[in-house]
Design a protein around this nucleic acid. Sequence first.
DNA 1: TAGATTGTTAATCGATTAACAATC
DNA 2: TAGATTGTTAATCGATTAACAATC
Lengths: 213, 213
Amino acid sequence: MEKKTISPAVIRRLPRYYRYLGELLDLGVEGISSCELSKRMHSTASQIRQDLNNFDSFGHLGYGYDVKNLHDKIGEILGLDQSRNLIVIGAGHLGQAIANYAQFERMGFALTGLFDVNPDLAGKKVRGISILMLDDLERFVQEHGADIAALTIPKDAAQSVARRLMRLGVPAIWNFAHVDLEVGEKTVVENVHLSDSLMELSYNLTSRRCDQK
Amino acid sequence: MEKKTISPAVIRRLPRYYRYLGELLDLGVEGISSCELSKRMHSTASQIRQDLNNFDSFGHLGYGYDVKNLHDKIGEILGLDQSRNLIVIGAGHLGQAIANYAQFERMGFALTGLFDVNPDLAGKKVRGISILMLDDLERFVQEHGADIAALTIPKDAAQSVARRLMRLGVPAIWNFAHVDLEVGEKTVVENVHLSDSLMELSYNLTSRRCDQK
DNA sequence: TAGATTGTTAATCGATTAACAATC
DNA sequence: TAGATTGTTAATCGATTAACAATC
């Protein structure tokens, strides 16, 4: 649809717009100006208008934006109107946390498979899905397909599983392992590096005293 | 120590440098040039040198950087040489995942408390720490202190717990709730918004076909 | 020494903010 | 209409990359 490439900085802000617009919807707000929205989000009206106009002209002159419409449109841009199959590889606490998170289903992501190497977990059910052994990955994906694979496994296992997923044609990897995966250009990777996040927090905590006058 | 403010873009890269240098240490590599490191990290030598020189001149002319020394120095910059008490609020799967993650202890973060509102969990032990009721938060923090509080609770509860933490003087919040917390300027917040991350992945998956020639 | 690589300044690139004509 | 607010262009700001003198 859209021809030009959108800057990553804009993409990263879209989920946040989506979240705020969802909250406004719940509050029963029907319309909002970029100025008012920017105050809520602690950003600038200019940035909001610039960001949105990367995709389309959603606003109404002299009035602002229709909350419901904008929420829907951003949802479409993010692909939330399509349903996606999500498999989770690694059924430890983190894997089960993701498998259990109902919010994701509301955004169109359906948990269809859950894998682990630990035989003690075999057959245990999480949200109605039985944990399978990792050996069954190929058979399962060939049979049922998978759009997104969440990798909640130790870093030493991650690259080899990523290779198997690429071979199976799974197009997207949501990577929680503390390693940067090497994948082909057909594969989309999104990293959640919790230890990086904690280190960033640690830096800000450490250097905080300088800011305080 | 350092006077000038460091740009957030640089700070976000530091944990990644730290991770790669740790890997090089494990491989027994003693020295590395910015050029060689940039190839491994898929970044540029120029950026690495710029980034590091925000803090100090760590390199040696004609030779490069001493891996062990640079790893240690970045660790210090990130505050990993100091030990921090971490409490986890919300003992669901995500909370337990964080509580169980041994890697954090190696970086100087010690789990000292674990809280939940569910009475069924009271007294259950995770890594030797008994789960306490959220009502005990004030008493616990006044007695034992806390440097960082991880918030692994539903979004509706997050802001009110954040206020309690601010009142108790807990300086840092690692927020996993899907909401932007409003905190005073004395409090440092680091967000991990998993649903935002999944939506970003969804966008990249949706718009992927355009890139493929 | 000669080759290599740094630290740093200058040039480029990209992202954010400001300004304003168009118009509902 | 008059007031408000958009979409968009221009100006500013910040971050990345290139270049190179200094020197181990």
